[in-house]
Write a protein that binds this DNA or RNA. Structure first.
Lengths: 198, 198, 198, 198
DNA sequence: CTCTAAGCGAGACGGTACGTCACGTCTTTAA
DNA sequence: TTAAAGACGTGACGTACCGTCTCGCTTAGAG
């Protein structure tokens, strides 16, 4: 995220203050009503300090969100793929809906629709690592004979995750998003290995 | 979309010019780079005329997009539900990706993440009518015994449409979106009626 | 004032409503804060009806002020020129300061600084008639040997009236304006006929 | 004039460009036809930079006029009060009528009729200093026995200056204003000390 | 253990667009 | 055939932020 992290002299204090202010403001006022000026003011920082290290408001908020999320994309593995998927998807929806992440996520994704660089950063730092973890778990389920082997696991990932984001971005409401985990069973039906044809 | 369509004194000429200008500008420059001033200028119209009838840029572009789409949400019905779904979903993705709608749609949806009124308008004028058509077709397929009767058809709609929008909004690229119709077969597998249990 | 008074079909009701509304609004809000839209609204009249008969807000207010003033510019004549001048000038300042005319007058004159046509109308309908009355009285005083005959009476008029307007327009405050009548005596001293040279 | 002249970060370049542009535009087009946008454009400056330092167009033009006038309100003192007054009043009228100041002055004063803060600023920066100089000269003339001692000198100032502004603001025309100096003699007659009573 | 260059806060600057107001004109509806 | 009502094109308003650009100040690392 940091365009030029080379400098050793960068003030960690300022960086933290900016990310904290950004996250707090977005959570409280909504992404659209937050300005870089307001972030700078709340962080007790000059605007140029923000522009020096980030390209846009979206970039700041994405990094703030990343810090909030942490690096933990690990997928549970109890041996029961259906249970593990349900667990994980429930966790994701909770974080998306009730968590403090919600506003930041919607804001960043809205912005990213018109900002390819921001979209790229989001995918690289959040989406793709998390997809990779999911695929790894699905691969092991395929190897265990719990899932069909003739459907690519990246397609499976899409099938499991799509409903969450579909409902989230198209305004179906928090309850609908929260119930996304219920679809896991229906999707799984189509992905079970079958002796009796295809 | 028009907040106050009651007045019969409204100038249809101005309305058309505004919608045409908005759609053209968004298609050519991208949603984010279009301003209401530019729309007014290109339409040969005063800014107040725009603000008199629309709440925001998003509202104008949504209405322009609606006019472009027309009212036709009809679902094909050949008797073969798999074929019909593939046909329809292919059509939707084409329109979303290659069509002139693309930029407007992304822009409006990005905006709608932070504008509940805009989201509501989108759902009422586009999404819900189109879901209703799909459900009607699925209902008839259920009645014909082509689909399981124990999964609500609104859930089925989500399963079929989610991948498109998921790939579209999360930056998977046009090719991935275009291939969304391929998932229909996999989803259908889980929705087939089964005498032999699950 | 009426640019085109030819039409016999002009609505006297509308004219009265407009002038009353204009005068009332200017008195209550001050000239600068009154708009033609507001006058039309309060008068229950369409804007074009105002524009049909007057060139500008200043013209409306000037006419309203004229109606309020009436046609009476008569100068008292008790035979004592000093007393008559004091009487008249006191009356003028009272009307200017305490009267309902005050706001309208300041507004119109402020506007007239940049609107020659308005200035001309003001002079023709108010200033010049009132100067003429004053000169007539001064002429009779000269004839009666109460004033020097070698100073033109129009200059005398200026000397008597100038302080009022000077203090009024240059912001000396209402009290200073009100005391303008006190200067009559001092000015008169220089205008008395003198046997002993000049 | 500057509402907040404290900041030492203020750009003198911008200030000069704004005042120069304002004065030039007012001189060429007349006060009423000048907009803050036009001043900003001609000065090569953003509108906010004007609003940061001035309350209104009138305030800008007043300051521009002040700079044009300079601080020199000195009154001549040759020992002959009649000659000095004529000299000074001729100078004032010349500056008012023919000078580049003319349009700015009329515009500001017209505005000031409805803007007390502007009137106050005008009085403090221009009118009162200039009155003070005049009174000082009159005081010395009184002390020299050239003027009556029983008329307050501030009243005398009014008598001498009133005709100029009266004729100027009430539309008597440039020639009448220019001839205002002629009245000095007549006014002086009433202000001469008299042993022989009055 | 200075010294000097960086990164910093602060905030003014030239801009762009905002959303609003009132203008003066034009069109439509009802009396 | 007026006049009310009010939508229209226009242009300026005053404001909010943008992203850039000085400024001094501080502060840490290289000499």
């Amino acid at each position: 995220m940091t365009p030029d992290p080379k400098s050793e002299r960068r003030s960690e204090r300022a960086r933290r203050a900016i990310l904290d202010a950004a996250f707090d403001l977005v959570s409280r006022k909504g992404f659209a009503k937050v300005t870089i000026e307001a972030i700078a003011a709340q962080a007790g920082v000059g605007k140029p300090t923000i522009y020096r290290w980030w390209r846009s408001k979206g970039a700041v908020v994405l990094e703030a969100m990343n810090e909030e999320l942490g690096d933990d994309f690990a997928f549970p593995d109890t041996g029961d793929i259906a249970a593990d998927l349900t667990t994980q998807i429930t966790a994701v929806t909770q974080r998306l809906i009730t968590g403090r992440i919600s506003e930041a996520f919607k804001g960043v994704m809205g912005e990213a629709q018109n900002d390819p660089a921001l979209m790229k950063a989001f995918r690289e730092t959040i989406l793709e690592p998390s997809i990779a973890e999911c695929r790894a778990r699905l691969d092991s389920a395929v190897a265990a004979g719990q899932l069909r082997s003739d459907v690519p696991t990246d397609v499976m990932v899409d099938l499991f995750y799509a409903p969450i984001h579909y409902r989230h971005f198209l305004g179906f409401g928090d309850d609908a998003v929260r119930r996304s985990a219920d679809l896991v069973q229906d999707v799984l039906l189509g992905l079970q290995p079958r002796s009796d044809a295809g």
